[in-house]
Amino acid sequence: MKSTTNSIILEVACRLLIPVLIVFGVYVLVHGEYSPGGGFQAGVVLALAVVLNRVMEPADTKKGYWTFKIIALAGMGPIIYLLTGLWSIPFGGNFLEYGHLPLAVHEAERHLYGILFVEIGVTVGVMATIISIFDSLGKVGDPDDHGSLL
């Protein structure tokens, strides 16, 4: 039988850790306005969940990583941020002026939602960047992978 893991200890530890990391990352993201945390930290925690999953796999795995797609995802982060900033302009606000977002809540709460959208953009950018750096560092030239930049 082909081995599906590096070691049983690593796999058990990662299986315990990865769901906790994902839940904690989302918690740090959406609770960032109230408690210490925010987009950058949540991005790092979520990226660590994916990186642990890659560490858990055996070294001779043939599974192709989505290097180029993950870079495109990293580019989505600043774009989400930028669109949140531009969203308030047609409604009479300045760039990144969250008080003019067209949400049916009062003004201070619109700021909260604006901060949340912006933090989601930061999280996506940081998470995908860390995963792409890990993939680039660990990637040996793979003959079957022609699907990216070259």
Binding site: G32, G38, G85
Partner: peptide, 20 residues
């Protein structure tokens, strides 16, 4: 900003362009 966390308020609201 309605945010009790002053760091987040400065990071994402007052200095939003910087964070972008």
């Amino acid at each position: 900003t309605g945010s009790p966390n002053m760091v987040t308020a400065v990071l994402a609201d007052y200095r939003g362009l910087d964070t972008l």
